[in-house]
Design a binder for these strands. Structure first.
Lengths: 335, 335
DNA sequence: GGGTAGAATTGAAACGTTTCAAACTGTAGT
DNA sequence: ACTACAGTTTGAAACGTTTCAATTCTACCC
């Protein structure tokens, strides 16, 4: 049924070793022979069997990438960055979506481990890195993405979320807002708690400013909607005058609830700032301010670190790259 | 270095065959033995080697999915639907992004063929199905996604794009608009030409109505922006009074250019309708009307057809499922 | 106690590739 | 003519799993 190197070898009347060499080290084979083998391959429609290659090689040519949420354009962008860089090394990226769910995350880790991936890129769900530690001991390089690793543990690529949170809150305060609501959750997710921490610091610097935490179950549009509905039920006295959403999906949901279903105006009644600066932030019903992160660069750099770690003897110190986030100001925080 | 079944067998003092049976047919092994083998696995930290499994099995447990554009939430949603259904059969989905680029599409097809994927789901770029035909003859079931296959060729899952285009244009006409611009491209992409065809039919039914085609190089936000800029340069007499964008990304770009950088109002000066009804359409600067497609359902159904084809002897007729699109009306076409 | 059905276990073969030491060729130098 | 040597080619071994026919074990019945 399937055509194998053996068949090709027979058709070109050479040995299997030669066929393999034509495929992998053409310079070691006489040009005439290369020619002959190539046409046999063409004729028989031979297609390499990747499973056999991998088995022999011990490692696959794929990189596993586990993200928190594929529906979030931020992660799509990270993935694209990683893919670009990986493709340049003729590596493939396998995308896994944990959906911020521990069970699914574990399932992908198992899967990638069984596949003997070349390396693993992951935005881990929680602080428990034991599983990843085990993976690495097994010889799979691991790089943390969008999350700073504890020193001397893993390589990581991250954006300073505390700084980002600080930027966001300071911007709101600079606009004269004093009662800030931080919307986001679960707080167990490091990105969320760091952004909150940053916001707290900014608020602490301004006399008379207060921050309230409105926890959510996830970082999605519907959750944002729900919070929006709840906020506008409040009396003006109880209501915050600015909202800092832990990511742009929440911000979109909030906006939708406030403007479309409710009667609160943004930014007049409530200023709004999001996080990630996804493309859609600029075209939202009220284009909203956000904290921009270099998503694609994050992905590319993560692959770089991975390759570095893979080529080394595992003896080097892990490297931790941290990018600075950047404020992007739009209508939702003007006036 | 790596722990293999052989090591586990030795540790549990059984044969390799028994270890394999514990893993794959536990019911065929005495409970006490299962117990012993399992603890040996645990102790040694044994992890199955997927490459070896696949090599033996002849096929991998993954489904390849090639989409036109991962940045388009419509395709993300299709992918999620496919994943859900695949996961239920403990299959994995490998996501490939052709980016509407023939070379990259071909690269993914090669890759998936080498991986001996369980099956292939693809939104093909052009009308040339010869490559896919070859793949199928090689024993890989193929299902076309979001594109109706010619009768008796492949199984496919699609949404009636002609009907969708008709719905969109008729809606604009029903709102009193008479000079409609169709924005989209490349026209070689079937989805685009079908939607245009539908629109043409609707326009033909109304006396005094005209349609103008504004071709684009891709279906992206920046392309939409560019067209938006161009449109608002025109004099009111030359300008269309309604735009039908071939997808929502274009629509977002158009909206951005018209409202933010320009001085045209939507829908007063120009009505706008998109296609796909991605989540962000509802929260756009002017929430815009769109043609909704059941994206996740498309993905799930595609996997169903694939499994059906894979289980059969390849003798059955290919099945072609077509869903109906649906109009969703929002502010961009009101009044 | 002999026979047997059935359950449990064994171990070699096969999947298709790559690697690598060994064998083979032909050419050039002495 | 003989050696040295580089350039080619060879073929067996190894990667780790699953399968399956053959074997051993167990328990039961007559």
């Amino acid at each position: 049924m399937t055509v194998s190197v053996r068949d090709v070898a027979a058709a070109a009347s050479v040995s299997v070793g030669t066929v393999s060499n034509v495929l992998n080290h053409p310079d070691k084979v006489a040009p005439a022979t290369v020619e002959r083998v190539l046409s046999a391959i063409e004729e028989l429609g031979f297609v390499r069997n990747d499973a056999a290659r991998q088995l022999r090689a011990g490692r696959s040519r794929s990189i596993g990438l586990v993200v928190l949420d594929v529906r979030n354009p931020f992660f799509t962008e990270v993935a694209r960055g990683a893919e670009d860089r990986a493709a340049a090394e003729s590596l493939t990226v396998l995308l896994g979506n944990s959906g911020a769910n521990g069970t699914r995350e574990a399932a992908y880790l198992d899967l990638f481990e069984e596949q003997r991936v070349h390396g693993l890129l992951i935005t881990p769900l929680n602080e428990d890195l034991a599983r990843l530690e085990r993976l690495r001991r097994g010889g799979t390089p691991v790089v943390l993405v969008d999350r700073q690793a504890p020193p001397r543990s893993f390589s990581s690529v991250a954006v300073d979320d505390v700084a980002g949170g600080f930027l966001a809150a300071r911007h709101l305060l600079g606009r004269g807002r004093r009662r800030i609501a931080f919307v986001g959750g679960p707080l167990g997710i490091r990105q969320v708690s760091d952004r909150l921490e940053g916001a707290r610091r900014a608020v602490a610097e301004v006399a008379g400013a207060a921050i309230e935490v409105v926890p959510t179950g996830s970082l999605t549009v519907p959750e944002g909607c729900a919070v929006g509905e709840a906020l506008q039920e409040r009396s003006p006295a109880e209501r915050p005058d600015a909202v800092f959403a832990a990511n742009d999906l929440l911000a979109m949901g909030l906006l939708q609830a406030l403007m479309l279903r409710g009667r609160l105006r943004v930014p007049e009644d409530m200023a709004l700032i999001g996080y990630d600066d996804i493309d859609f932030a600029a075209t939202a019903i009220v284009p909203f301010s956000s904290i921009r992160q270099p998503a694609a660069l994050l992905g590319r750099t993560a692959v770089d670190l991975l390759l570095q770690e893979a080529s080394g003897q595992g003896t080097e110190e892990p490297r931790q790259v941290v990018f600075r986030p950047e404020l992007v100001e739009r209508a939702s925080t003007r006036a």
